[in-house]
Design a binder for these strands. Structure first.
Length: 489
RNA sequence: GGUCGUGUGGCCGAGGGGUUAGGCGCAGGUCUGCAAAACCUGUUACUUCGGUUCAAAUCCGAACGCGACCUCCA
């Protein structure tokens, strides 16, 4: 089995991945809050951990991947009254809260499907696990690390730290930092310390989403859902917990605290965090006018976009940067990614129609191990992609008859594409033919044959007319040494 | 202000004490009826200032820039 090293935020080091249970791997990733259309901020973690999921599976683990749907207890960014995000939107649109959640869940799934992100093994809804969350809160109360106040329950950070734990161990913050930098806000008087966080919140009368509990009607605090659902489906502790860097504090920090309080040990072995994305060097935000949804990317409908970008262009672009680096979306960079992606796909098509040489003279045996080495080094997808540009060059050179690939070499290269580029990086050939492919192939062969005849007769008018009219319907004709080929633009 | 991260050539981005990243772009060439495609060649960089070292883009320190988080929601 491959030795995979992953960067553990907890230790700030790359560590060899060793599962808690031989042959099995459990991973939990914080999923979307379903109150709005999916955007780039959703694509990055989904793609990053999709690659991890695919790779762990590929190297032989039986993987259970849990990614939650958060559908309770949300507030608008600039909300004024603590009203539940989903409830608020529901009232505006005259829909049931769960109808809104379902609608955006479907939208999220559609976008992820287009990005070729595999569905996780289990996708639990927070609203479906209220009982488990209440049990968690009870446990923490019984352990003495929480207190009830006016119908809400808060985690007692000071008590927790006094008992040799450290709230802040993941993010590097000390309690003093937090106390001195926390502003005084309304509603804080229920807490003993401003750093305390809610385990259970009392619902105001206006709240639509509410559940009965030993402390009255209310809803769970944000951090409770991940602890409860991770435990339920992956055990406690489990292997890997992932999410965006923006969730490190307070969300993941609080999950660690909740778990220690409830069970006396850590929730998981490895914490992985993907970095954030920017648009033209700026963070994406509704107020900045650069908030672009995935649909707008696919359709090119946002004013900042000079053209549409296909799902695979976006996936390729994201994978061309390491997941712990920030990635900046700019038109120039996206166009470069689009061209690079097409180059690789075109090389694959060329490979498929290559005539094997009786004797090969190109070196193709080292790529496989180098791909593994890159992936084992904390999922270094940019290096894998760079290897494929080398492979593309090897294919093109052979197609140009400068070098030769034997049948075995061709099989090996084809295997590399299937395993790494398609299988693990999850790219796919978007211009690959659909159901009609047989028909289209046949038509195109006929047309290109006619053009070849025209060319043989030096009838340039006819041959150019064929080329131009094909271009008009989005088909590019490419003349090569062995006749013409075509591709969809 | 605090915490975490980051600063690479025209653009995007790996790497990371001495040995080519890669892509896109641009320039020249091969091929071609022309064009495109493909191939070849060229374009060689690490924010600034100190320090460590035989040797620093790579390590250490400081400054500056950028990003996330630091609050109620998730």
């Amino acid at each position: 089995m491959q030795e995979l090293f992953i960067y553990n935020t907890l230790s700030r080091n790359k560590e060899l991945f060793r599962p808690l249970h031989e042959g099995h791997a459990g991973m939990y990733v914080c999923g979307p809050t379903v109150y709005g259309d999916p955007h780039l901020g959703h694509a990055r973690p989904a793609i990053t951990f999709d690659v991890l999921f695919r790779y762990l599976t590929h190297i032989g683990y039986q993987v259970r991947y849990v990614r939650n749907i958060t559908d309770v207890g949300h507030l608008e960014h600039d909300a004024d009254d603590g009203e539940d995000k989903i409830a608020k939107k529901a009232r505006l649109e005259q829909l049931e809260p769960m109808e809104v959640a379902q609608y955006y869940t479907n939208r999220y799934h559609d976008a992820m499907d287009r990005l070729n992100v595999l569905r996780p093994s289990i996708e639990p809804h927070a609203s479906g696990h209220i009982i488990e969350q209440i049990e968690l809160v009870k446990k923490i109360l019984n352990a003495g690390y929480a207190y009830e106040s006016n119908g809400s329950v808060y985690f007692d950070v000071r008590k927790y730290n006094a008992d040799t734990h450290q709230y802040g161990c993941l993010s590097g913050r000390t309690l003093d930092d937090q106390l001195s930098t926390t502003r005084q806000l309304a509603g804080q008087e229920e807490k003993r310390e401003t750093a305390d966080f809610a385990l259970w919140k009392k619902a105001q009368p206006s709240h639509i989403m509410r559940w009965p509990s030993p402390w009255g009607d209310g809803f769970p605090g944000w951090h409770a859902e991940c602890t409860a659902m991770g435990t339920k489906y992956l055990g406690n502790p489990f292997d890997i917990h992932g999410g965006g860097m923006d969730l490190m504090f307070p969300h993941h920090e609080s999950e660690i605290a909740q778990n220690y309080a409830a069970t006396g040990h850590e929730p998981c072995r490895y914490w992985m965090h993907n970095n954030m994305i920017t648009i033209d060097g700026q963070k994406m935000g509704k107020s900045l006018g650069n908030f672009i949804t995935l649909d707008e990317f696919f359709g090119g409908t946002h004013p900042l976009l000079s053209q549409p970008y296909s799902p695979m262009t976006i996936r390729f672009f994201i994978l061309q940067a390491h997941y712990r680096s920030t990635v900046d979306f700019g038109n120039e960079a996206l166009q470069a990614a689009e061209k690079g992606y097409h180059r690789l796909m075109e090389a694959y098509r060329t490979l498929l129609r290559l005539t094997p040489a009786t004797k090969g003279d190109a070196e193709v045996s080292t790529y496989r191990q180098r791909c593994y080495d890159a992936l084992n080094d904390d999922l270094n997808t940019p290096v894998v992609i760079s290897l494929f540009f080398d492979i593309a060059k090897a294919i093109n050179t052979a197609a140009d008859h400068r070098t030769h690939l034997a049948q075995g070499d061709i099989e090996e290269l084809k295997g590399l594409f299937d395993t790494f580029l398609f299988g693990i990086l999850g790219l796919r050939d978007e211009s690959a033919a659909d159901n009609d492919s047989g028909l289209v192939e046949g038509l195109m062969r006929t047309i290109l044959d006619l053009r070849a005849t025209a060319k043989a007769n030096k009838d340039w008018t006819t041959s150019d007319r064929i080329r131009d009219s094909l271009a008009a319907v989005g088909i590019a004709v490419k003349d090569g040494k062995d006749g013409a080929t075509w591709e969809r633009k």
